[in-house]
Design a protein around this nucleic acid. Structure first.
Length: 112
DNA sequence: GGCGTGACTATGG
DNA sequence: ACCATAGCCACGC
């Protein structure tokens, strides 16, 4: 069991999420791919839910699935919290989905 | 080690 | 646009 590998993965996820620009969003799969694990999209989601203590420096609300849907909003304590945070940043959300997702999408690979 | 579950993704009807 | 399938991997029982 390589705990270090697991920790490295987790830290890599945090590092990427932390550099997501204000008012922009990305997907679990994009993050997974950016850190060299294109098939670990589910793990990225797991990492986010595990970070319950979600420090403010980790804007997990800017991470949605490939369809621009807020699949993890229920993990923010209050279901409306995630959407609220996004709208505060100017991101329009309707029916749990982000409007202009293709425009607001931010690809980590472009920064790395 | 099997089995179900999940903040996932891609594809096809 | 919605639902079903299949592939994916880690975690808990």
């Amino acid at each position: 069991m390589d705990k270090k590998e697991k920790e490295f993965f987790v830290q890599a996820v945090y590092d990427v999420v932390r550099i997501i620009p204000y008012g922009r969003v990305t997907s679990y799969g994009a993050i997974a791919k950016a850190i060299g694990h294109s098939n670990m999209s589910r793990m990225v989601g797991r990492v986010m839910s595990d970070c319950k203590a979600c420090p403010e420096n980790i804007p997990a609300h800017r991470v949605v699935n490939s369809h621009g849907k807020l699949s993890g909003k229920d993990a923010f304590g209050c279901a409306a919290e995630m959407q609220k945070l996004l709208e505060t940043e100017g991101v329009i959300v309707v029916g749990d989905k982000i409007k202009k997702f293709e425009i607001l999408f931010w690809d980590p690979l472009q920064e790395i």
